[in-house]
Computed example of a mutant assay.
Amino acid sequence: MTNSVVKFIRELFKTDGFIPLHAPTFQGNENSYVTETINSTFVSSVGEYVDEFERKLEQFTHAEKAVATVNGTSALHTSLYLAGVSRGDMVITQALTFVATCNVITLMGAEPIFVDVSPVSLGMCPQALDEYLLTSARLTETGCVHLASGERIKAVVPMHTFGHPVDLHALQDVCNKWNLVLIEDAAESLGSFYQGKHTGTIGEFGALSFNGNKIITTGGGGAVLCKHKEAGVRAKHLTTQAKVPHPYEFYHDEAAFNYRMPNINAALGCAQLEQLSGFLANKRSLAAHYQDYFDNTPFKFVKEPGYAKSNYWLNAVICPDIATRNELLKSTNDEGVMTRPVWQLMHRLPMFADADRGELSYSEYLEAHLVNLPSSPVAHFS
């Protein structure tokens, strides 16, 4: 069976060469815009393309304000800072995520708490979140308190796994009930919509990533999506060293960050955004081909939730058992077709081994059974 999977993927991508998991596609104005930036000499944080990139993100996502940053991790860090997370706080997230989600929580001086993911979205499960809080927290006049430690639980950070939106309204209901701030890790979900609204715009803040393996890339880069314009103005101020505008004086009114996206990266991003609708169409077409192929096999293809429209950033299958998963990973990679398992769960990493957590049975199931498939939007898969 695994040999036929390799054959099918090669037929899809029409190549006998190496097939990466997700490679960037440059077929538009990338060279022109980047060259223009170089010729202007404004390659760093001051330049027209940064402003244009932020405007285009706002137009596409309908966020009140988008603030471009140097990467997705810095965007999430800024979001947590703006949400009021501080040293000694606790932040609930999912164990099945990329390590950057938890690294940022630690960078804030806070501690992560892990809850399980949903079989529908592969992202944070609202029921698992509520059940954890009912047994491990209490609501006081000053906020949500962790019973075992007495520390404040300040925020909840779900991640839209592989671009599939979590059930945001259900999570928001739990957050409202427990007086918690909802912050979306939307690093993988540019172009994904929850009940018609773009991911990253329903929580107080959302963090996007434009790393080289994302659906569009700025080389490195990210953005903070803000629900309120005033918060966006503050995010822009914080990410530019809190410098007070002046023709020549250098005055900074608070300790802040150098998280500004360089103009040369934003130029690349503007060209990529012009092609985003085509990338999304191609990726959905590729996902449909994968689904048709795997429907009559022992593998279960991961489909978008019924309440959402996913960008299908990374396609995935759930294998019937661990042995088949291992065989699929080995046979594909041996044949030059890049596949990969899901991330090791965060509580298995040494720096998060002592973090509090709820029951994680489905996260552990996915860790042992899921395989990601090549997902580059290189062409229309007719």
Rank of each mutant, 00 (worst) to 15 (best):
D130V: 14
E131C: 10
E131D: 15
Y132W: 14
Y132F: 15
L133F: 03
L134F: 06
L134A: 13
T135E: 11
S136K: 15
A137L: 06
A137N: 00
A137D: 01
R138S: 08
R138L: 08
R138H: 13
L139I: 13
L139S: 07
L139R: 08
L139V: 12
L139D: 02
T140A: 07
E141Y: 12
E141M: 12
T142Y: 09
T142D: 07
G143E: 10
C144T: 05
C144G: 03
C144W: 03
C144F: 02
V145P: 02
V145I: 15
H146K: 11
H146T: 02
L147Q: 09
L147F: 04
L147W: 01
L147A: 02
A148G: 04
A148F: 01
S149V: 06
S149W: 11
S149A: 07
S149I: 11
E151K: 15
E151F: 14
E151Q: 14
R152C: 05
R152W: 09
R152Q: 11
R152P: 05
R152I: 12
R152H: 07
I153E: 10
I153D: 11
I153K: 05
I153W: 09
K154Q: 12
K154G: 07
K154S: 14
V156S: 01
V156L: 03
P158C: 03
H160T: 07
H160V: 09
F162K: 09
F162H: 04
G163H: 11
H164V: 04
P165K: 02
P165I: 05
P165T: 03
P165N: 05
V166H: 14
D167A: 08
D167R: 15
D167Q: 13
L168G: 13
L168I: 15
H169P: 00
H169A: 12
A170V: 12
A170C: 10
A170G: 09
L171D: 00
L171I: 02
L171Q: 03
D173Q: 15
D173M: 13
V174Y: 03
C175G: 04
N176D: 14
N176T: 12
K177T: 13
K177S: 06
W178M: 01
N179S: 14
N179C: 11
N179F: 04
N179G: 09
L180Q: 10
L180R: 02
L180W: 06
L180T: 12
V181N: 09
V181L: 05
L182T: 01
L182V: 01
I183G: 08
I183L: 02
E184N: 05
E184I: 06
A186L: 09
A186F: 04
A187V: 05
E188D: 15
E188K: 09
S189E: 00
S189T: 07
S189Y: 02
S189H: 06
L190G: 06
L190V: 11
G191H: 04
G191D: 00
G191S: 05
S192H: 02
S192W: 03
